[in-house]
């Protein structure tokens, strides 16, 4: 005689589909709330000056060599490509201008954002993830410290501050790299190069693209902190948080950049001084 069993009915296709899309949406909702809290906490007393400074040191200063080196390399490569193109039209004198446009308007901010999301995003994800799984975040809380305020807000703020600074650094080292490449080939003089580079730029080509990297910083800070702060599952969880921090903050950054570029173009129509 067969034994009667009362198993729950198998989930329908629709149900499992809904569940599979619900998880990422839930995750994203969590991220949005987390970001909102980060904004709120950034403006809440007490300001963790020491921690902000420490994070600025780590995120900003310690990234500087990476940024400068990459800037020099990117600048010289861009310059060489620009030369190859403009040479055909006999417009070599436009090289600094074209390079400055490319660097200051898009390449500088975007490359900085991606480099920092690699270096800092992974760092924050791993650091906070590690603190979470080794109960250091609990320890902080047990010591009557608001761990979100102390760990997350400070890092997000440091990212927001550091990104524009690093972008400026990237732009200038890129132009310098371009100058070295150009000077080697054509012996262009330094004053002419920099005069020509900034010759056709307007404030709207320089300030908004630099300022938009604050948004990049916020994205990198919140995404990686969210992943680290909510990590679970031991060392493996920490590794996952670290990797996902890089991947997701890079993707968010690239996607949001599209919106930002359009938004800047809307605010500052071409040619506006």
């Amino acid at each position: 005689m067969p034994i009667a069993t009362t198993q729950p009915p198998p989930p329908s296709v629709l149900q499992s589909f809904m569940e599979s899309i619900a998880a990422p949406i839930e995750w994203f909702g969590g991220l949005c709330l987390f970001a909102a809290q980060a904004i709120r906490e950034c403006f809440q007393r007490p300001f963790e000056w020491t921690e902000i400074l420490r994070q600025t040191y780590q995120i900003g200063w310690q990234s500087a060599p990476l940024i400068v080196l990459s800037g020099l390399a990117v600048g010289s490569v861009l310059s060489m490509h620009t030369r190859a193109t403009l040479e055909r039209f006999g417009a070599e004198s436009m090289i600094p201008t074209a390079l400055a446009f490319a660097l200051v308007k898009e390449t500088g901010p975007l490359v900085t954002g991606l480099l920092i999301s690699g270096r800092v995003g992974a760092g924050i994800g791993a650091e906070l993830g590690g603190m979470r799984v080794t109960e250091q975040i609990d320890a902080l809380e047990s010591l009557a410290v608001n761990s979100f305020h102390y760990l997350v807000a400070t890092r997000v703020l440091a990212c927001v501050v550091a990104l524009p600074l690093l972008t400026v650094l990237m732009n200038f080292s890129g132009l310098l790299g371009g100058f070295f490449a150009e000077a080697t080939i054509s012996g262009m003089s330094f004053p002419y190069y920099f005069h020509a580079a900034f010759g056709s730029l307007a404030f709207s080509d320089f300030i908004p693209p630099t300022a938009k990297t604050m948004v990049f910083g916020f994205l990198i800070g919140t995404t990686s902190a969210y992943l680290g702060y909510n990590a679970s599952g031991g060392a493996e969880g920490v590794g996952r948080a670290s990797t996902q921090s890089v991947v997701l903050s890079s993707i968010f950054l690239i996607v949001v950049n599209v919106v930002l570029v359009k938004f800047i173009a809307f605010l500052f129509p071409v040619g506006g001084a």
Binding site: A139, E141, S142, A144, N146
Partner: peptide, 23 residues
């Protein structure tokens, strides 16, 4: 929440299983 708990937590000491020292 965390901020409201702070005054109480100041009077509590917690020794975690893993010690949870700040690295």
């Amino acid at each position: 929440d965390s901020n409201a708990l702070a005054p109480i937590r100041k009077h509590i000491g917690f020794l975690f299983q893993s010690a949870a020292l700040f690295d």
